[in-house]
């Protein structure tokens, strides 16, 4: 099976988020970048599917400039076979999805895995857009995937439960925790890191570069006032504050 995993390179979850002076851009100075956490579940799932089927290939693909390569190498160290970087600064979901689907149209895959959303832009859109551009089914918030020949059982999360779906490959999923368990996530080991250095990381040029949305500025949410502490022997006071001051109960 030929699996493509779309990897977004995002600020480490511990990062403090800052913007350039007028709020026009994200300030990446001093920020560590990592594989988008949702994409890690997808990458691990891809590795497992490949191992079970005893063949095939896992390709990772990222739309980004050269600064995303360390994160791509990490994905190779975890076990992907090869990497494709589409050489363009990713600015919106539409342009990112257009570039990825244009690549996929000439390099067909059996399964396309995205994350349910990127933790920086939070667009939650690239997977669905790729699916539409390729006229393929899309199952988002995917928490179960069992491939049996070309017939596949999927589970997606829904409000207060889950839904079972059958589909035939190829299709696109938006992955998250549950696709594999947290404990199954793979950490690159020394051997993987060494091997990753010699795995192919191919750079291809964008084809369309057409955006549908544009960021005008960023602001940090207003700082909270200080916390009102209530004595632990006076729980009634807390309840009264919530009822009469905050008016939330």
């Amino acid at each position: 099976m030929n699996i493509v995993v779309c990897i977004s390179s995002v600020p480490d979850t511990t990062s403090k988020i800052n913007f350039t002076e007028n709020g026009s851009n994200f300030d990446s100075s001093g920020v560590q970048f990592v594989i988008n956490p949702y994409d890690e579940f997808g990458l691990t799932k891809a590795m497992m599917l490949k191992e079970v089927s005893g063949g095939g290939k896992v390709t990772i693909i990222t739309v980004g400039d050269a600064t995303v390569e360390p994160v791509m190498r990490k994905a190779l160290a975890i076990g992907a076979d090869e990497a494709i970087r589409i050489n363009m600064t990713a600015t919106d979901s539409y342009s990112t999805a257009t570039e990825i689907s244009n690549y996929l149209k000439s390099n067909p895959a059996d399964l396309i895995i995205t994350g349910k959303e990127s933790i920086d832009y939070n667009g939650g859109a690239v997977g669905g857009m790729i699916a539409e551009m390729m006229k393929l089914p899309f199952i988002n918030a995917c928490i179960g995937l069992e491939v049996n020949g070309s017939k596949t059982k999927l589970i997606r999360e829904i409000e207060g439960g889950k839904e079972n779906i059958l589909a035939n490959l190829p299709f696109v999923i938006g992955g998250q925790k549950g696709l594999v368990q947290e404990s199954e996530l793979r950490i690159p080991n020394m051997r993987g890191i060494m091997q990753a250095r010699s795995k192919p990381l191919n750079i291809i040029e964008p084809t369309a570069n057409e955006s549908m949305t544009e960021s005008l500025n960023f602001k940090k949410p207003a700082e909270k006032g200080s916390c009102k502490l209530v004595d632990s022997n006076d729980v009634a006071k807390l309840v009264s504050l919530l009822q009469n001051e905050a008016k939330v109960i």
């Binding site: 979901s93 349910k116 859109a125 997977g127």
Partner: peptide
């Protein structure tokens, strides 16, 4: 979250969530 991005790509309309 499955429909909005699909519709955006299908109709070429910008989507904001």
């Amino acid at each position: 979250k499955m429909i909005a991005p699909r519709l955006s790509a299908k109709l070429k309309i910008g989507a904001i969530n």
